[in-house]
């Protein structure tokens, strides 16, 4: 390995040679962000993921673009009927249009995950920055706090919390699930933010800015945050996917969305018992759910690879 390094670093001044300016001066120096973007532009995984994400987001914002059928119109007469021109994926046990319900199911999943991830991101930024920037006992206290929250398995905490928040049987459980997930899943983000802030804080240019009289607020926003942003964005992107999956799991278990709400988790949960009659009402929401989660995780992976120069 050392050989390759010495090969690639042959243009670096050595102990014996005189350092002369590198010949690559005519090329415009690019920032890390610019480099990462160059990297992403050529990555098919990134584009696949991005297209899928855009598709899902559009689907949840304007479901009527994808189907003209009404997901709420069900007729038992059509129970378990196969696919047709009117209903691409056939009908479920209540005689509802599976395709329409799957398309309309995107909204709840995406919205809940978006709200939950925003909450988690905000808590993560505040806790992580405070711990990283102030250090000392603040850091020790917050780090313990993170440990304690991590000490409770996510799904168990979610079961208890979501149960409690949605104790009113007439609510759909939308806000309960979103809040629950947000309050539970902020720890990874906080950890990443904390370590990025600590490493950025020790950079010479930040020390220089501080000596020039920049206050903590300015330091954070102008100098520290931009550097901590990339890994944090990666964590949040992946969390978007994970939260969609957890929401479906909670719903499946009966502590998430309920009642008349249309969602992938409910569709999976409700159609599982009838799977011997027809598998479509189970399979299609499953496929949509898995693809959505996959898209967010792939997107996060691609961004991380682009921003992590060690892997290039």
């Amino acid at each position: 390995m050392s050989n390759i390094e010495s090969v690639t670093q042959a243009e670096v001044p050595t102990a014996i040679g005189v350092p002369v300016s590198p010949e690559s001066g005519h090329e415009k120096p690019r920032s890390l962000t610019g480099d990462a973007w160059e990297d992403l532009r050529r990555n098919w995984i990134f584009w696949t993921a991005a297209v899928l994400v855009v598709l899902v987001v559009v689907m949840s914002a304007f479901p009527s673009l994808f189907t003209s059928a009404d997901p709420g119109s069900c007729a038992l007469a059509r129970q378990h009927k196969g696919p047709s021109g009117a209903a691409l994926f056939g009908y479920d046990f209540q005689g509802c249009d599976v395709y329409a319900r799957t398309v309309y199911g995107a909204r709840n999943s995406v919205l809940i995950s978006l709200i939950a991830t925003t909450i988690a991101g905000l808590i993560g930024v505040i806790v992580g920055m405070a711990a990283g920037y102030f250090g000392g006992w603040v850091d020790a206290l917050l780090a313990r706090g993170i440990d304690i929250v991590l000490g409770i398995p996510t799904l168990l905490a979610a079961i208890v919390l979501a149960r409690r928040l949605s104790s009113d049987p007439n609510e759909s459980g939308f806000w309960a699930v979103a809040l629950t997930l947000g309050v539970i899943t902020w720890t990874t983000g906080a950890r990443i933010m904390r370590s990025s802030v600590i490493s950025a804080k020790n950079q010479d240019y930040v020390a220089a800015a501080r000596m020039l009289g920049a206050g903590p607020g300015r330091l954070m926003i102008r100098h520290i945050l931009p550097n901590a942003a990339a890994p944090f964005v990666v964590v949040l992107t992946i969390l978007l996917g994970v939260n969609i999956a957890t929401e479906a799991t909670l719903t499946f278990l009966g502590v998430g969305l309920k009642g008349d709400a249309i969602s992938w988790g409910i569709a999976i949960s409700e159609s599982a018992p009838y799977v011997t009659e027809t598998a479509r009402p189970l399979v299609w929401p499953s496929v949509f759910l898995a693809l959505t989660v996959l898209a967010f995780i792939m997107l996060g992976d691609a961004i991380r690879d682009a921003f992590d120069p060690r892997l290039r």
């Binding site: 996917g241 969609i244 999956a245 957890t246 479906a248 799991t249 499946f252 988790g265 999976i268 949960s269 599982a272 799977v275 011997t276 598998a279 189970l282 399979v283 499953s286 759910l289 898995a290 693809l291 989660v293 996959l294 898209a295 995780i297 792939m298 992976d301």
Partner: peptide, 22 residues
């Protein structure tokens, strides 16, 4: 691994049951 990571257990369990069990 990417596929596995993106398959929530609520998707995987019923599908596996459907395919391999039924």
């Amino acid at each position: 691994t990417l596929l596995l990571l993106s398959m929530p257990i609520v998707v995987l369990a019923p599908l596996a049951q459907l395919i391999f069990g039924m």
